[in-house]
Simulated assay, not measured.
Amino acid sequence: MTAAVSPSLYFTRIHHARSAPVRHAFEYRSYSWFFDLDNPPRLPLPLRPFGYFRAEDHLEGPHTGLRDRVEAYLARHGVDGAGRRITALMNARALGYVFDPLTVFWCRDADHRLRCVIAEVHNTYGERHAYLLRTDSAGRAEVDKQFYVSPFNAVDGHYALHLPEPADTLSLRIALLRARQPPFHAAVTGERLPVTPWTVLRAQSRAPLSPWLTAARIRRQGITLWARGIPVVPRPSPTHSYARTNS
């Protein structure tokens, strides 16, 4: 087994754009954590309340560890992830709360080749849904939309995703494609930094209490769209999604 990847922070820019039924775009600064599941970030005690992780915030099952949950998810889809390298890009909890619109896991095989990608989408209703993706050599994949994310987008169409594993830079892109409608675009880009007390403090100054701030920003954008007259799509009863808590 190769050495575990060192944890990193990415100072990010998050961009969303839609062109129908109204034109609306926004961009904001944030940060994300990238790490090997066998080598998660361990912050000094005074900083720990601003960046820690709980397995219960991701995927499904009774397993107590995040690797256990990822391996169980892979096994349900016929993929052996036991002992394989798995890296993750996600948000951490801050003062007891987490909101992570998109969590991505890159899963390798015994020969260290990328086997598959898990893209886990979270909505503001406390639900989440994971997609197993077989990406090509450029990190691209397509999948049917199966989960209610926004009250302004129905559960239809399909996603075109570009999810290469981060290196010195991060560049993730998602387009929601639907019949007779222009696509909705989202992108996350950023630059890698080591996890140190100084970079964690810089991240806090860049996006204070990031999970709280992200959730507030999404709700503010929703109010803006509603005020502009975009019809609300009723939320269906959850079928493929599963709830999480912030307790």
Score class of each variant (00 low, 15 high):
residue 5 V to H: 14
residue 5 V to A: 15
residue 12 T to C: 15
residue 13 R to F: 02
residue 16 H to C: 07
residue 26 F to E: 10
residue 27 E to S: 14
residue 31 Y to E: 08
residue 32 S to K: 03
residue 38 D to Q: 11
residue 42 R to H: 12
residue 47 L to Q: 06
residue 53 F to D: 09
residue 57 D to C: 01
residue 64 T to E: 14
residue 65 G to W: 05
residue 67 R to F: 04
residue 68 D to C: 08
residue 81 G to Q: 03
residue 81 G to I: 00
residue 82 A to Y: 05
residue 86 I to H: 03
residue 88 A to K: 08
residue 90 M to F: 05
residue 96 G to I: 03
residue 101 P to C: 11
residue 102 L to S: 06
residue 118 I to F: 02
residue 120 E to H: 04
residue 122 H to Q: 14
residue 124 T to P: 10
residue 128 R to F: 00
residue 136 D to G: 08
residue 139 G to P: 09
residue 141 A to W: 00
residue 144 D to C: 02
residue 148 Y to I: 04
residue 151 P to V: 00
residue 154 A to P: 12
residue 157 G to Y: 07
residue 164 P to E: 12
residue 168 D to H: 11
residue 169 T to N: 12
residue 175 A to W: 12
residue 176 L to G: 05
residue 177 L to A: 06
residue 177 L to W: 07
residue 178 R to G: 04
residue 182 P to H: 10
residue 187 A to D: 11
residue 193 L to G: 03
residue 193 L to M: 11
residue 201 L to V: 08
residue 203 A to F: 10
residue 207 A to E: 08
residue 209 L to R: 12
residue 214 T to C: 07
residue 228 R to V: 01
residue 233 V to L: 06
residue 237 S to C: 07
residue 237 S to T: 04
residue 238 P to H: 06
residue 242 Y to P: 02
residue 244 R to C: 08
